[in-house]
Nucleic acid binder design. Structure first.
Length: 818
RNA sequence: GCCGUGGUGGUGGAAUUGGUAUACGCGACGGACUUAAAAUCCGUUGGGAGCAAUCCCAUGAGGGUUCAAGUCCCUCCCACGGCACCA
């Protein structure tokens, strides 16, 4: 026997919409709560069962919080700009706008079929001009404050597609789309100065409740290090540069300097010398190799001498300047001083016979001798500094601070901070993105589009193919490109690059607070009411991109006084992936994709929802199991069937054990939902149902509690069964409306949860020998006596010496014998 | 290589943070119902020894701390995720 989920689910979805049950009220008297899930990219593939998992989880939390009296904002929208849609449009000769609309319609239908309690009145779409108007507005604010700037940058260029690629579109040096090789090309790019916020993006993590692994990943990604900038002069040339060193303790060991092959200074160093030709050839060779594959430090140490020297930086002689494959142009200053106490430098020097100098040795004399004799690489924390003389004998790991101060005092260099984080390349040469609201005027130069002229709308084009020159497809729309300068009225050209797909998602959480506003990106009072997001769920893969970007944007907006909180998200959790049944990632090519539509059709939305909550710990990747869904379906069928055994409250027979279980279940389900332990919340409900089924009859009161606890997980069946029981007052005494979701969340009675009797565990030498039922709260002497007089225990302790007896109240007694 | 997470039955996973390991679900086996099958319901189900009461052994491997370890500490192995020439 199975219930008619199809009829029930569509019936209630319609009714809930009519009742407008899930609307979030601006400025309600109730306490506010803002739940957010990362809004989906509406791809052609439709909704993934992975979406269902995280959306259901927050839906469960939202529904429960509403029943607990919160004014909950749980919104949804579409992050719809992006390359896949553009590619789809190119392939099928269809406007990306149309493709996007179709995809959104599919996603929307699918989400609605799951009975998610979104406030649909706040739906947003990043490709809507009314939305991206404000994305452009924020860009202009960045520009106004000097945080958006243009810079010549090497970009990834796919040789076969003839298109510029974002870093994330390049996989191991190859184009993500065609698999062909890519190379770096210099191009003027818009940049956002996220590095200006690097320190605060680290330190403010202390003020938010993120999973620890998310914090560490962000900190590592930003990669802050403190060290020294040495200022150095090139001998015989009027050139000075800085060299960054994050481990300057062994600075006196430095015997050579390396400059990155791509460094602009390289040319100046060798110009007009005999080294020019071989060096420039070497540089080209390395660039080519780097473009094709990742560099392997073990095998590919390559370098060449430039013929130049750094002039005697520490009074210990000149340092030859080399070029080496392993030095990066975009970290620090792109130039490094090298010593015997860095593993790569050591290996490089050995390969090219560059003289080395040792200033760190093991404390042990024999060991020190060995290191010297065999000329081994050495850098251990317990090694002793040999030079400078003032620090001789100091442990290396303790020498950092004093030596840094020494270096500064001597005037060799200055304390400096460096980051692995780079400024954000914000230009894309694509069609399907927000136009960057800038024009270039011959007279006035770079001119921002005035706020009143926003949005700069995407023009319609015939086709979206990229151009041969690597310009955006927009460059071909001359009507659009040619415009007038907002300042002087003279002829001007529009910026043809668009924003990356991360732009719209960097502030969307603010728009939900006031999605229809056409005067501002959101009303300040509404932002003050709703922000920050109380709970934000998303994937770990966004930790160093979207999550960091959106924190940056929010902080900037906070600094210019238009958002109320410095951090956008109070708490961040992440979901685990739903894998295919074979344990692999679901993918079209492997043919192992589970389509949520089919599951909803075959088993119902409630089963799908509840199964995904039950499948395993929310944060972990779990393979899909068709068998597993059946167990949940069975459970719901049994809940359905149980309605035949429900009796009036009056005739209810007192059942202490059942009462206690009911209240324990209330506590467990409540706590587990708060703690994102949905799997054990479901199992608690199963245990309760098992107990109910053992009874001839169960009371309406108890049945209602089961339904209330079930309702966030399986809303449709709970609502349907609830409607059968109406109009009895609910156990939570809410008069309110007729919907189960207008009832109060049940509360447990602490008195009923208290155990009167417990199973005392009696151990002998830590092994369980018996359990006996005793009253709760018995004192030590009584319990010990019971234990020692226990027949089974007697057998074990007979003739043995009792060393001691451990007593844990209401839990166990452990008799230690010899 | 570095950072992070994890390793528990045939299987997805529980275990209140040091106190009855294997909850709940799936599967499997046995039974009821049925002409039969499906569905449903009832029972059994970590391994080993024993007629039984009962006992022994099991949480990736090996050590340690403790009256007591899946849980804490050390060493190692494996899997997954992230970063990866960052001087």
């Amino acid at each position: 026997m199975t219930y008619d989920y199809k009829e029930i689910e569509s019936k209630w979805q319609k009714k809930w919409e009519e009742m407008d049950l899930y609307r979030a009220e601006d400025f309600s008297d109730k306490p506010k709560w803002y739940n957010l899930v990362e809004f989906p990219y509406p791809s052609g593939a439709g909704l993934h069962v992975g979406h269902v998992r995280s959306y259901t989880a927050l839906d469960v939390v939202s529904r429960k919080l509403r029943m607990q009296g919160f004014n909950v904002l749980y919104p949804i929208g579409w992050d719809a700009f992006g390359l896949p849609t553009e590619n789809y449009a190119i392939k099928h000769k269809i406007h990306p706008r149309i493709a996007t609309e179709e995809n959104i319609a599919t996603f929307k239908r699918q989400l609605k079929s799951l009975g998610l309690s979104y406030d649909w009145s706040r739906e947003i779409d990043t490709t809507d001009p009314e939305y991206y108007k404000w994305t452009q507005w924020i860009f202009l604010k960045f520009y106004e404050h000097g945080l958006a700037y243009k810079k010549k940058m090497p970009i990834n260029w796919c040789l076969s597609c003839k298109v510029g690629l974002a870093n994330e579109e390049v996989v191991e040096g190859r184009c993500e789309r065609c698999g062909g090789p890519t190379e770096k090309r210099e191009k003027e790019q818009w940049m956002l100065a996220i590095t200006k916020y690097a320190d605060r993006l680290i330190s403010d993590l202390d003020t938010v409740d993120y999973l620890e692994k998310i914090k560490t990943q962000q900190i590592n990604w930003i990669g802050r290090s403190e060290g020294i900038n040495f200022t150095e002069k090139v001998k015989d040339l009027n050139i000075e540069f800085e060299v960054y060193d994050s481990i300057p303790q062994t600075f006196l060991a430095q015997t050579f300097t390396i400059i990155a092959p791509e460094h602009p200074l390289v040319k100046k160093l060798v110009e007009g010398t005999e080294y020019e030709k071989p060096v420039m050839e070497f540089v080209e060779e390395i660039k080519r190799k780097k473009a094709i594959k990742k560099f392997d430090i073990e095998k590919d140490l390559e370098g060449i001498f430039t013929g130049r020297y750094v002039e005697n930086p520490f009074g210990t002689g000149d340092l030859p300047i080399w070029i080496a494959s392993y030095v990066l142009a975009d970290y620090g200053t792109g130039i490094v001083n090298c010593s015997a106490h860095d593993e790569r430098d050591f290996a490089f020097a050995k390969k090219y016979n560059i003289p080395l100098k040792i200033v760190l040795l093991p404390e042990d004399k024999k060991q020190a001798k060995k290191v010297k004799k065999l000329d081994e690489f050495y850098r251990e924390p317990d090694g002793l500094i040999q030079q400078p003389e003032e620090f001789k004998g100091m442990r290396w790991d303790k020498s950092r601070e004093p030596l840094i101060n020494y270096i500064e005092k001597k005037g060799f260099g200055k304390k400096a901070v460096n980051y692995k984080l780079r400024d954000w390349i914000f230009s894309r040469q694509h069609y399907w993105g927000e136009p960057i609201p800038i024009v270039f005027c011959e007279k006035c130069g770079t001119v921002p589009v005035p706020e009143k002229d926003l949005p700069v709308k995407l023009p319609d084009v015939e086709n979206y193919e990229p151009t041969d020159t690597g310009e955006s497809p927009l460059a071909k729309i001359t009507d659009w490109v040619n415009t007038t300068c907002p300042v002087c009225g003279g002829p001007a050209r529009r910026e043809t690059d668009t924003m990356p797909n991360w732009a719209g998602s960097s502030w969307y959480f603010l728009r939900y607070a006031d999605p229809k506003n056409d005067k501002a990106f959101a009303d300040a009072e509404k932002l003050k009411y709703w922000m920050p997001v109380n709970l934000y769920n998303g994937g770990m893969e966004h930790t160093t991109l979207h999550l960091l970007y959106s924190r940056f944007w929010n902080k900037f907006l906070y600094d210019i006084g238009v958002v109320p909180t410095s951090e956008p998200y109070a708490r961040r959790v992440s979901h685990g992936m739903v894998l295919a049944e074979d344990g692999k990632k679901m993918s079209k090519s492997l043919g192992n994709v589970i389509n949520p539509d089919e599951v909803v059709d075959e088993l119902g939305a409630d089963t799908l929802r509840m199964y995904e909550m039950f499948m395993g710990p929310f944060g972990e990747a779990i393979p899909w199991s068709a068998e597993g869904t059946r167990g949940v379906k069975r459970f719901l069928d049994r809940v359905w069937k149980l309605r035949n055994r429900v009796e009036n409250q009056e005739s209810r027979i007192k059942n202490k054990i059942l009462d206690s279980l009911v209240h324990k279940t209330i506590k467990k389900v409540t706590d587990d939902i708060d703690g994102f332990k949905f799997n054990t919340a479901v199992s608690a409900l199963m245990i309760l149902l098992n107990a109910f089924e053992k009874e001839e009859k169960i009371s309406a009161h108890d049945y209602k509690i089961l339904l209330l606890l079930l309702s966030p997980l399986a809303p449709h069946i709970a609502e349907e069964l609830w409607s059968h029981l109406a109009p009895d007052p609910s156990p939570s005494q809410e008069k309110g409306g007729v919907s189960i979701f207008q009832q109060l969340w049940p509360q447990f009675n602490p008195e009923l949860i208290k155990e009167e009797k417990i199973n005392l565990v009696i151990q002998v030498n830590g092994k369980i020998r018996d359990t006996v039922e005793i009253e709760v709260g018995l004192v030590e002497d009584e319990v010990k006596k019971t234990a020692l007089e226990n027949e089974k225990v007697k057998k074990w302790i007979e003739g043995k010496e009792i060393v001691k007896v451990i007593f844990v109240k209401d839990k166990l007694v452990n008799i230690v014998i010899k």
